[in-house]
């Protein structure tokens, strides 16, 4: 089996992607608080759900990217 190398560039990209997902999840939480008229402390108290939502976003985004790169490599061959 071949050794696989995760480059520093890749790590940085993934961390930034995760951070973007986390920011989006917080924005969604904020929108929900405004839309449903609930309390702003939920920005803190609901962080657990926000983290779960960020990870879910990240996974979805990763799946989309894998599909994209998969199709691209098939087309290039």
């Amino acid at each position: 089996m071949k050794d696989s190398v995760i480059t520093a560039q890749r790590k940085r990209t993934e961390l930034i992607t995760l951070l973007v997902c986390f920011v989006i999840a917080n924005v969604v939480n904020l929108c929900a608080i405004i839309a449903y008229g609930t309390r702003f402390v939920e920005l803190v108290t609901q962080l657990g759900y926000v983290v779960i939502f960020s990870v879910a976003l990240y996974i979805c985004w990763t799946v989309l990217r894998l599909i994209y790169y998969g199709i691209r490599s098939v087309v290039r061959k």
Binding site: A32, I33, Y36, T38, E42, T45, Q46, Y49, V50, F53
Partner: peptide
């Protein structure tokens, strides 16, 4: 007390 906005959504 209503459920948190996020869960309601």
């Amino acid at each position: 007390e209503p459920a948190p906005g996020f869960l309601q959504m």
